[in-house]
Structures are given as C-alpha cells and as structure tokens.
Nucleic acid binder design. Structure first.
Lengths: 166, 166
DNA sequence: CAAATTTCAGATAAACTACTCTTAATACAA
DNA sequence: TTGTATTAAGAGTAGTTTATCTGAAATTTG
C-alpha cells in the first residue's frame, strides 16, 4: 500500500479529532476505541504527531491529545509527512536513489507528473474537509463500524463484505 | 513505497528485456548481473511473470526467459498486476475493505480520481516505450551503474550520491 | 550417454513492520 | 499525601518481506 499502517492510523485519528464539534483534549483510549485500533500502538503513532507539532498533548485525568492548529490549517500531507516521511511524494517509482532529470529512470517523466498531482491533492486536502465528510451519513473512518463479534469476523473471513465496490 | 521490491525487480527485468534489439531468450543470470539484483531472488520473481503468461522460459544451455508477447503489447500495469496483484489500483487510500460509493471513507472521492489516473498511466505505459527510454543516453534502469564496492558503499552512506535530485 | 547450463522448487536466514507489554512521568482529585 | 488517569518511552514478540542457499528437473552439447 502507499501508506504504512502506522500512517493510516495517524490519519484516521487526526480526522476523527477534526470531526468533533469542538477541538478539545480527547484521550487516546477513546480514539483507539472508536477506530478499533490497538491503544498502545496508536499511542506510539500519535507521539510522532505531537513531536512534529501537529498535536498537543496533556497528561493526567481529563488529558489527551488535541489538534495544535485549526483543522483547516493541517493538511493530509502534513500528517503523512510526520509519520511516513516526505519520501512518499519525492520517491522514484522504482525507488532508485538519485533519480532525477540528470540521471532519470525510464518512467521518470511520467511518474513525476503523477506524483506532483498526488502531492497537490494531499497538500490541499485539509483535516477540516475530511472531518466534515467523516460526519456525513454513510461515511466511515475505520475498519468496522463497531467492535467485531465472532460472527461478523467469520462472515468477513468468508469474503462476505458488507459494502459494494466502486 | 507504492510497489514492493519484488515488483520493482520484475519491472526492471521486463524493461531490460524490452530494451534489447531483438526479443530472444536471456538468462536470468545475465539480467541479474546487469541490474545488480540477487540472481536467486530474481529467479523467483520472474517465475511469477512466466506463470502469469507474460514471459516464456526455456531450460538448459542457451535457455532463459523472453517476453511472451511483443513489448508493445505488455503494459506496466500487466507486470505490476502479476507480482503485487491488482490491489494497487483498487485499494482505498486508508486500506479500508469495502470502501466504495455505498460505504466510503472521507477521502474516497478524491482518491478514486487519483487512483484511476494512476491506473490509466500504468495501463498505457508499454514495455516498448520504457525499453526505448532505457536505451537513451543518461537513462539508467537499476540502482548502481556497476557493482558496488566497499568504498562506493561507504561514500553513499555518507550522503555522497552521484546524481542530483529533481 | 555424460557433462554442462539453465530454470524450477523448497528450506533457511536476515531484516523490517506491526503489534504487545511494562515501566516511567505527569497531573488532577479526594 | 495518596490514589488514579493519562501520555511518554522503550523493550520485547510475531508475522511478513526480502534475500540466500541447496538440490532437482529439463535441455543442449560433445
């Protein structure tokens, strides 16, 4: 996949925070519960975002994490950058180091135009917009709508997905 | 990265074959040598391509692998499909299973247009074109121009890359 | 037929990613 | 001050990907 799982978790958490009516401290436990993500793992992921200055954190009762800026001032690219690094938007399609105009790979020209479009999309997509969409009917943020029970789990394992493809 | 390393190796090998003046059996050892890839690993990767019908193989002296069709009839997407699977061009940005019009993620609309562009690019980029480009001056296919010696390796580790960035 | 060359197939090892667990540090509340 | 809730930090575990190695099967050449 384009993004690492850590990165996806971070993005999902950020969108969840942006989807709340007000920007306030939310405990990581709550976020992990809503998104069905391992609490301990999410903790580590969100540390990246606080260290990058995208989130502010507060320890102790009623503490948690909150967006450091208004959701309209944080782009999807900001979040991706902080977790997976900016290589996603810079890398050669074949991962060749130093691939550039002076020493290109065969797909260089085609890929750079593609890649800059991708970068532009992620840079202009703000958490505000994504949060608004997340609040719309029939839009979901995480894997399952609720906690997975054994029956559901078995159903998905048998390929019985509850939604149609594109 | 978007593509797995196995997939990149397969693509590089396919482009190398397409860059040759005539389509003939080439030993995997030769390809691995030219591209600085582990011979045994490349062998396993190319087996995927032969099983997918993109290559034909021949055992014994003067044997090897060759393109099963004309290089203009094999797209980059064909090769990617055969190794990494077609999920690359179908997957949700966040990897949510069943993400579609009925049950979308917040980024669904934006991502699908992006993804279809990517798919279109890879489907229309043929090995013929990529092979031609590979034959042009200053275009390279693989990681290093020659085998890496310890001194070179050390130099790159110190950030001394022999090519300029975009 | 024997020897050399090559792909095919499977076992093993190393490296990386994803995840879990434990212990600290911090802040509030009774 | 003691207990509790919360993030921070880091060590440890499991699974996947990447890479290496060995032997077998196939095919040509002498």
């Amino acid at each position: 996949m384009l993004l690492s799982k850590s990165c996806v978790y971070g993005v999902q958490a950020a969108i969840y925070m942006a989807s709340l009516p007000r920007n306030e401290y939310v405990s990581i436990q709550e976020i992990a519960g809503k998104l069905n993500i391992s609490f301990h793992f999410l903790t580590k992921v969100l540390q990246n975002l606080t260290q990058a200055g995208l989130l502010v954190s507060y320890r102790g009762p009623n503490g948690g994490v909150a967006l450091a800026r208004h959701s309209s001032a944080i782009s999807l690219a900001d979040v991706i950058d902080s977790i997976d690094g900016s290589d996603v938007f810079k890398e050669c399609l074949f991962g060749l180091p130093g691939c550039g105009v002076a020493d290109p790979c065969p797909a260089h020209e085609h890929w750079t135009t593609m890649r800059s479009r991708l970068h532009h999309l992620c840079s202009t997509l703000t958490l505000e917009e994504l949060g608004k969409r997340a609040n719309q009917l029939n839009v979901r943020l995480a894997n399952a709508h609720g906690p997975m029970n054994p029956a559901k789990l078995l159903a998905t394992m048998n390929g019985n997905v509850d939604a149609t493809a594109v």
